[in-house]
Amino acid sequence: MPFSITISKLSKHYKVPEREAGLKASIASLFNRKYKTVRAVDEISFNIEPGEVVGFLGPNGAGKTTTLKMLSGLLQPTSGALQVMGFNPSKRPYEYLRQVTLVMGNRNQLAWDLPALDSFELQRAIYGIPSEQYKKTRDEFIDLLELKDLINKPIRNLSLGERMKMEIVGALLHQPKVLFLDEPTIGLDVTMQRRIRTFVADYNQRYGATVLLTSHYMADVEALCKRVIVIHHGKLLFDGELAGLVEKFSAYKTVGVTVADARADLSRFGNVVAQDGARISLRVPKAEASKVTSKLLSELQVDDLTVEDPPIDEVIDHIFTAESVAG
């Protein structure tokens, strides 16, 4: 089966003016302007299968949004090749735009003063959706996201989460085959985040759509993506299963131990990161995890013992911090 998204050595470089602060530098820049090249995306390559949901991770400024914008045809690459469903997004053909969507968590496209239903009608006309299909899809999404009581309220009167749900309905009415989701849950409470995650998962199942998701909320990524692509300073750091990311980049294991004597000092076994009564969490270097657990079992009266990978947030944070230091 051909790939849904193919990127090969894709780069986007910006030439940005650069000058020192102050009046003198300001006047000098009028005559001798200096530029520097920023490599927002630097020769990244990956493929995505149809129907895959992939998390696209990286700290702010890593190049995630720039990549999404190139994939959606908003930005022209500096070099490299990319194809989405066999189309070159840079050419922006009608058939391509008809089958993709870009949802940005901090952008609205619904009319502020009108009920969402009016804006949905405009989406129908923009995408040339047949009336029957439009009504069926609209009502189905409204049910799934429990929006029935809100569709007649002007958008300005909705909460942030309600507005985001409406935006997602509007963005998916034409049943796109490829979804670029850029921080779709940003600023939402956990309940609303969960609702949107469930909806995206459901849409992916129902329509077999390919989803490329960026999010700073690891709960989104854990719930939706088996595979993640990590980018930092415009370069690809990792492409593989989420579990593999933890395996590769986590330098520590978390050992949870419940001991008979809650007053026992466990600091000699590792770094005590939490204690709740007799339950103590230790962070130990990955290579020493088995040695530490044997020592714990042999030297203490242990009621319960678990060895876990650290939370994904911690791993990601570790990768980006380490890379920042290295870079």
């Binding site: 959606s72 922006r92 735009l97 870009l102 940005m104 609205n108 496209q109």
Partner: peptide, 12 residues
């Protein structure tokens, strides 16, 4: 405001 990006994503 980023509105143009949203408009450019439409097939019109």
């Amino acid at each position: 405001q980023g509105q143009l990006s949203m408009e450019l994503m439409r097939p019109i």
